[in-house]
C-alpha cells in the first residue's frame, strides 16, 4: 500500500479545559476518500479545522498535543502543527483546501463568485488577473456550472444552493490541491442536488487524483462515496477501517447503533412508530 498522504497522530484539541478532540489518530491515502463519521458535537469539524490550523484563529481553542503529518511531493513529511503561520498560508487553499457545509454563508456576499475564485488562484499562483479568470472559467466548466461566464459575474445570493456549492468546489479545486476536506458538503442541499454533488465530487476526484476527507453524519453518503471511515463520538476515536468492513461487521457498539439508526425502506411496515434501539451507553461502550 502507498504511504499515507496525511497521518493524524494522537491529536488533542482543547477549548479551555474541555477536550473537543481527545487523542485522535488516522491515516488518509492518496486518491482515497476517508469519511469521518459521528453525531453532532463529536468533534468532526474541529478535526478538519485543526488539520488546516484554522481552529485556533478567532477562537479560544488550542491544539494541546499530537501530530498532523502531510507528505509532500518529494516524499518528505512535515508536521502541520509545527509550521509557521506563513507556511500554513501557502498550504491552505493550495495543498489542502476545504468545502464547507453552508455554501451561502461560506461565500462572501459582497464579491462576485468569479472574483472569489480568482482571488484563490492569484493567492497561490503567480499569474495575471486575466489568466486567473481563464482558469476560474475552466473550473466553473469542470464543476458543470451552466453559462459559467455569466455565473462568474453573479453574487452568491443570486445562485441556487447547488450552484453555490459547485462554486465552492470549483474554488477549492482551483489550485489542484492534493487533499480536499469536505465538511458536510451536502447537508444544506436538497436530496436530488446531494446526489448530483456526490457524483460530481467522485468524478472530479478520479480526474484530479486528490484525496478527500469527507465529514458527514450521513451513513448513506459514506456508503456511496467513501473508501475508509473513522467513527468518532464525544470527541473520541471509536473505530476505523474500510467502509466495506465496518458496514459488514461493525466492531464497536456505537457504530452498530449508528448504522441501526439509518431508516430502511419497509422497516415501518405494520408499525405505527419507528422501532426503538438500545442506547449505546447502556452497553458500556
Amino acid at each position: 500500500m502507498d504511504q499515507p498522504l496525511l497521518s493524524v497522530r494522537n491529536l488533542t484539541v482543547k477549548f479551555g479545559e474541555f477536550k473537543a478532540i481527545d487523542g485522535l489518530s488516522f491515516d488518509l491515502y492518496p486518491g482515497k476518500t476517508l469519511a469521518v463519521v459521528g453525531e453532532s458535537g463529536s468533534g468532526k469539524s474541529v478535526t478538519a479545522l485543526s488539520i488546516m490550523r484554522l481552529v485556533e484563529l478567532g477562537t479560544r481553542a488550542k491544539v494541546a498535543e499530537g501530530e498532523v503529518l502531510l507528505r509532500r511531493d518529494d516524499g518528505s513529511t512535515i508536521d502541520l502543527l509545527k509550521q509557521s503561520e506563513r507556511a500554513m498560508r501557502s498550504i491552505r487553499g493550495n495543498d489542502i483546501s476545504m468545502v464547507f457545509q453552508e455554501p451561502l454563508t461560506s461565500l462572501n456576499p459582497v464579491y462576485t463568485t468569479g472574483d472569489q475564485v480568482i482571488e484563490t488562484i492569484r493567492q497561490h499562483r503567480k499569474t495575471t488577473r486575466r489568466d486567473a479568470a481563464k482558469r476560474a472559467l475552466e473550473m466553473f466548466e469542470k464543476v458543470r456550472i451552466p453559462r459559467p461566464d455569466k455565473v462568474m459575474q453573479d453574487y452568491p445570493h443570486q445562485l441556487s444552493g447547488g450552484m453555490r456549492q459547485r462554486v465552492m468546489i470549483a474554488m477549492a479545486l482551483s489550485c489542484d490541491p492534493r487533499l480536499l476536506i469536505a465538511d458536510e458538503p451536502t447537508t444544506a442541499l436538497d436530496v436530488t442536488i446531494q446526489a448530483q454533488m456526490l457524483g460530481l465530487m467522485k468524478s472530479l476526484q478520479q480526474e484530479t487524483g486528490a484525496a478527500v476527507m469527507l465529514i458527514t453524519h450521513d451513513m448513506g453518503v459514506v456508503a456511496e462515496v467513501a473508501d475508509d471511515m473513522v467513527v468518532m463520538r464525544n470527541s473520541k476515536f471509536v473505530e476505523s477501517g474500510s467502509v466495506y468492513d465496518i458496514f459488514e461487521k461493525p466492531g464497536a457498539a456505537y457504530t452498530r447503533a449508528l448504522l441501526a439508526s439509518v431508516p430502511r425502506l419497509g422497516s415501518m411496515k405494520g408499525k405505527t412508530e419507528p422501532e426503538r434501539f438500545d442506547l449505546v451507553d447502556r452497553e458500556g461502550m
Partner: peptide
Amino acid sequence: RTARAKGL
C-alpha cells in the same frame, strides 16, 4: 473562515 482556508 473560507477566506482563511484559501490561505489569505
